[in-house]
Design a protein around this nucleic acid. Structure first.
Lengths: 352, 352
DNA sequence: CAGGACTACTGTATCGTTACAGATTTATCG
DNA sequence: CGATAAATCTGTAACGATACAGTAGTCCTG
């Protein structure tokens, strides 16, 4: 009654390093194939065998060798976060990375950060990933209405998700912030405060959310009967110094606005500086509503009405969506839009 | 004269996918081994052959299969950035990641972000990397004087670099900010402004740079003859709300300081809030010097004297150091200390 | 001119895993 | 009872790269 000790070639005793399938095979007396199949719960393996294998695997802390799996199956278990080296102001990357890794922690996926210089080709990192099979899924941001990265990834069938939407008739997973709603509500807020001449610090025109934010802004102007003041092509991708100088000029002109909608938190900082350089006072000469990814403005300039965009949650949504896409869930079910959170009063705590 | 068309087994025509060594071998008529060795410039391959191989490889865009290399050699070509999900305030991660990837871009290394929950075991991700051979090198931060991660990595011989120093008699690569100098200069600055009763918002005591910053602070007090005001164990790891409330209390007490040294930019924000909650005015009732990782404070509160810690540069230094360590350079040559940059006046531009 | 040394290549085995095509045993059926 | 099916298990080959141990030539050397 000592088990089925057949006299098979009896795979040579596995070495001393980290356990592999061979180790388990040796310990259980089973074949390597059997162990492999048992661990992935294949239907042609006996229930008791599976149990035994699982037990041993757990005991010795078996973890599949990623290189082995990847070489054999092509599955990398990698999600690639593609980002511009430049998209850095106000650190949107940090909470994004945190959010993504929170989700990936419960999966076999690793997060690889793949940067590119905005001055160069945004397609380069995508091509690299496609050519080398570097990842099972990709997360991209700063999407454009007709985004060549989306086109390429779709054509080549590599799962991905975008932070931001597109307008190319391609159904794909995305997560986005409702910038239309944000701008609309911002206008409402300003008008309620008696402001009538509003300016918008908008995204650069080539990005998709430019038109979203503009649309919300304009719809707000119509619904709440306010007027637009032009900021002459200055947008959130300009440097803070440029924004400040331009806004100082605007505030000194006859055309000075009395209400400001800022599409970015760091932009808001420059706007405040410009306003003050023009000897105006925030809350008195003008009010401002800004989209923010953190609490700083609220702490330092509580006069500013802030609407919070939770980037960490965005990271989580994006991660869930890529994985869903990889798992074959239909793209339609992997799209989400987050609403701006009005930030009331002051005291909200910041973690750590 | 059609080359040496021997009648070898002539490896079966390589498939249509991405090129491998076999592809090049087929195209050049050489053996796979020869191609492999030629590409790594081995001494036993003819000069002309190397040239030919390199040319073909370049032409068809050959890139070694990472899984193949990793499986055979154990080399992962991965650098792992280990970070706390919580170390997030004021987004130190963003510029860090950018700095690292800037350096890695010129190498075969990929950056994998490996997070852990600070509430759990900081050793867990290190163990994971060691057990699974997930990376060739590791970057860790928030170092302690006797850091178990450093001990483990050293013992197991896995190259790493720390952001911050240790005090365990182990020589290892590091990059650090000179917090001693920062605090010392901060005291000098405050005393020059006529301040005499100084408080320090310090790092949590278990981290190495706690004692550095304290030492600099105390040396400054001695040299410039000022007094310390205790902040009762409040440190930069407390929440902003806690810091603000504690500081408000302190500012209302008889023991109120007139000079503040803030060890973190986000902490400074809370201190300002606390000070103002106590009806005091910055620049009048007290002056403040803060270490900052970005320009925000300078834009919003120019009264604060800021010393800039360039995290992006830190990322670059760290990346260079791990790679150096991997390449076998002696640890002594892979240590660097960055000096605080006094930020003069206002107008410095922020990129993008 | 045998034999040593050197140059320039090459085949085989192997890393850990999985797809695939069996193989063995037991149960079922007419 | 022979045959067929079902249930379990297994060996081989392959993914792409490299370490290692050769194999041919060529050129000396004595």
């Amino acid at each position: 009654m000592d088990g089925k000790t057949k006299n098979r070639p009896l795979t040579p005793p596995p070495d001393g390093g980290r356990p592999t399938l061979k180790t388990i095979a040796f310990m259980t007396g089973l074949g390597i194939t059997t162990v492999s199949r048992a661990l992935k719960d294949a239907p042609d393996i006996g229930a008791e065998t599976k149990e035994r294998v699982r037990l041993v695997a757990k005991q010795i802390g078996y973890q599949p060798n990623r290189a082995g799996v990847r070489l054999r199956t092509g599955k990398t278990n990698v999600i690639s976060l593609v980002l511009t080296l430049e998209e850095e102001i106000m650190g949107i990357t940090s909470p994004m990375v945190v959010g993504i890794t929170e989700v990936l922690a419960g999966t076999p996926y690793h997060l690889v950060v793949t940067p590119y210089s905005a001055t160069k080709d945004a397609l380069a990192p995508i091509r690299y990933i496609l050519d080398t099979g570097a990842a099972d899924g990709v997360i991209i941001s700063r999407t454009e209405p007709h985004d060549p990265r989306v086109a390429l990834l779709t054509e080549r069938g590599l799962p991905f998700v975008t932070h931001g939407r597109t307008e190319m008739g391609v159904v794909h997973p995305y997560h986005d912030f409702d910038n239309e709603r944000f701008a609309y509500e911002a206008v409402r807020e300003l008008v309620e405060r008696g402001r009538k001449r509003l300016v918008l610090l908008e995204p650069p025109p080539h990005l998709t959310f430019y038109s979203h934010m503009r649309a919300g802004f304009e719809r707000g102007l119509r619904d709440f009967q306010a007027d637009a003041v032009s900021f002459h092509h200055i947008n959130i991708d300009h440097t803070l110094v440029e924004i400040r100088d331009a806004f100082e000029t605007l505030m000194r002109s006859d055309d000075a606005p009395d209400g400001i909608v800022s599409g970015s938190g760091s932009g808001a900082i420059a706007l405040i500086a410009g306003l003050e350089a023009a000897k105006k006072t925030l809350g008195k000469d003008a009010d401002m509503v800004s989209k923010v990814p953190s609490d700083f403005l609220r702490w330092l300039r509580p006069e500013v009405v802030t609407m919070y965009e939770d980037i960490r949650v965005a990271g989580r949504e994006l991660a869930k969506a890529v994985i869903g896409h990889i798992d074959g869930q239909p793209s339609e079910t992997l799209q989400s839009l987050s609403q701006p959170e009005f930030q009331s009063a002051v005291q909200v705590s910041i973690k750590r």
